[in-house]
Amino acid sequence: MAERDAISPEPADDTELAIEGALRPASLEEFVGQHKVRGQLQLLLDAARIQERPADHILLAGPPGLGKTTLAMIIAHESDRPLRMSSGPAIQHAGDLAALLSSLVPGEVLFIDEIHRMARTAEEMLYLAMEDFRIDIMVGKGAGATSIPLDLAPFTLVGATTRSGMLPNPLRDRFGFTAHLEYYEPEELEQVIARSARVIGMDLAGPQRDEIARRSRGTPRIANRLLRRVRDYALVRGGGRAASLDDVRAALELYDVDAIGLDRLDRAVLDALVRRFRGGPVGLGTLAVSVGEEADTVESVVEPYLVRIGFMGRTPRGRVATPEAYEHLGVVHAAQGQTALKLDDL
């Protein structure tokens, strides 16, 4: 049978979930970017190892897709401890948290994603658990209710949040270390893409990696997702294992990712702000309704990147478009002084 220069069909059990797991680095040394955070975590874990104790509780804060879950897995791996994973929305009652905490083994790492979305009653129970490794179980109701203390195995809590400002101060103060993850530079994303390309068996030259990196919004998760779409395009329509620069651009254009990483929803929000509301100011809720999305989605997914690249500003009166937004959309605004606000005024 003649050889084919194409990506071999993946085994039936090689699902996207398995690929996602393979793309995650297994150690702090393999983890690309976040140099300061990596150094801080390494020191914290080394100190815990020398003292033969569980590491202090760790809060990982930052936008989605920067590696918070991956870092939690690395913390457990480098501590040589088991990892238990949960999420804030899944813990809606104190009893849910009590069942989770009471089943931990000594030294286990408990990862709670979106920890700011836990129920308030569960948060209050977590205070005592983090500080004294103990919880109080209420038995009975009314005047006959009694509190029974339950000792817990020492554990390390790793919390992840995209909204650190929504965490109550008593909870935030109980973390021994808070890591603030920053968006990646294109050069760092190129390293992420190069490693991921090797994992999925792609030949990707420097210009192709650079093209994907520039459209990845400073986010490794997006970079890996775009890389997989380029792989699919190369497999079906391009050169198989080796994707050309034209393949990369065509694939990303097919999936509505423009030259600076804006997708369909980003452009819809920007277009509504500029054309429908004449540059603003406009309230977040009104802007979200105009594009048929939830306000939380616009605020947490779309807005941070538009603000970061200088296309949108937040003012007390609402969201406004900047001159750069008009320029990107190719729109000439009628009232320069009214709608093209200076960044210094935002």
Score class of each variant (00 low, 15 high):
Pro168Ile: 01
Gln338Leu: 15
Val331Ala: 05
Val236Gln: 02
Ile75Trp: 04
Gly310Glu: 11
Thr70Ser: 15
Arg241Val: 13
Ala6Gly: 06
Gln336Glu: 13
Ile200Arg: 00
Gly142Ala: 01
Gln191Pro: 06
Lys342His: 15
Ala122Asp: 08
Gly280Lys: 05
Ala26Lys: 14
Ala99Val: 12
Leu171His: 01
Tyr305Ala: 07
Ser27Asp: 08
Met130Trp: 00
Leu167Gly: 04
Glu123Ala: 09
Val302Thr: 06
Arg38Thr: 07
Gly142Cys: 06
His35Tyr: 10
Gly62Phe: 08
Ala94Arg: 04
Leu17Val: 15
Gln191Met: 06
Ser244Ile: 01
Ala194Arg: 05
Ala194Lys: 04
Gly159Tyr: 01
Gly65Leu: 11
Ala259Asn: 12
Arg134Gln: 15
Asp246Ser: 07
Leu341Ile: 13
Asp173Glu: 14
Leu101Gly: 04
Gly88Tyr: 01
Val307Cys: 07
Met1Trp: 03
His57Arg: 09
Arg195Gly: 07
Gly239Val: 01
Pro64Val: 05
Lys68Leu: 15
Gln191Ala: 07
Pro89Ser: 04
Thr121Asn: 12
Leu150Lys: 13
Ala55Cys: 10
Ile50Glu: 10
Tyr305Gly: 05
Ala122Ser: 12
Ala179Gln: 14
Ala22Asp: 13
Leu306Ile: 00
Thr297Glu: 10
Lys342Asn: 14
Val158Gln: 08
Asp263Leu: 08
Ala194Met: 07
Arg49Lys: 15
His93Val: 10
His333Ser: 10
Gly283Ala: 09
Gln336Arg: 11
Ile58Arg: 04
Pro82Asp: 13
Ala26Ile: 05
Ala61Gln: 13
